[in-house]
């Protein structure tokens, strides 16, 4: 299969990070990937305000922010009655990569988790993940957000996971076969 690029030129991306340098890095990578329509926010409150006028297709947020961190922001986004966009995909960029942090991020309603330092390839793959394999949403008594388990082709994924688990424990970070093929040279 010939690898094809996703056309990101029509999507709106909101970048949330309290560190201005990090926002610049992410924005520059996105520009190079032809994702030109971006807005920035330095924290959760500002992001909420921005979302009222900016129809974000994807949110990239860091974990470490004050006074509202990325996990708290995501919870608010998913469950607050005045949330401007409770179902928008959220990709969390975090230096906290231990399983308990990934689990906490998932429980807050994060769609995909991405370890920093970031690279163009890792960012592109995470965006491809939310575009090509969107998650269904789940609403329970105490949770509203993307399904924390994938159900498509479950049997195949299960077998794949068991094999991968022998080699690496962080299957949360796995790349799909489809995305790997996207990145194969023509």
């Amino acid at each position: 299969m010939s690898a094809k690029m996703l056309d990101l030129s029509n999507i709106n991306i909101l970048i949330i990070d309290e560190n201005a340098n990090m926002r610049i890095i992410v924005k520059q990578i996105l520009r190079a990937l032809d994702a030109h329509t971006t807005k920035e926010a330095s924290g959760g409150a500002e992001a909420f305000t921005t979302l009222k006028t900016f129809n974000a297709d994807i949110i990239l947020t860091t974990w470490m922010m004050s006074p509202i961190n990325g996990v708290e922001f995501t919870k608010m986004l998913r469950t607050s009655s005045d949330s401007p966009n409770p179902m928008v995909p959220v990709i969390m960029l975090s230096g906290h990569t231990e399983a308990r942090y990934i689990s906490e991020a998932r429980d807050s309603g994060v769609t995909e988790f991405m370890a920093i330092p970031i690279s163009p390839k890792s960012l592109y793959l995470r965006i491809a993940e939310v575009v090509l394999r969107p998650r269904q949403f789940v609403q329970t008594n105490d949770f509203f957000g993307p399904d924390r388990h994938r159900h498509d082709n479950e049997k195949y994924r299960g077998e794949l996971r068991r094999q991968e688990d022998k080699e690496k424990q962080q299957d949360e970070m796995e790349l799909t076969d489809a995305h790997n093929s996207l990145l194969k040279p023509d």
Partner: peptide
Amino acid sequence: LQAKVPFLDVSPNIAL
């Protein structure tokens, strides 16, 4: 989102 993001007939490696 899928509807807004079509595939281009170029490799992602160029943009990367």
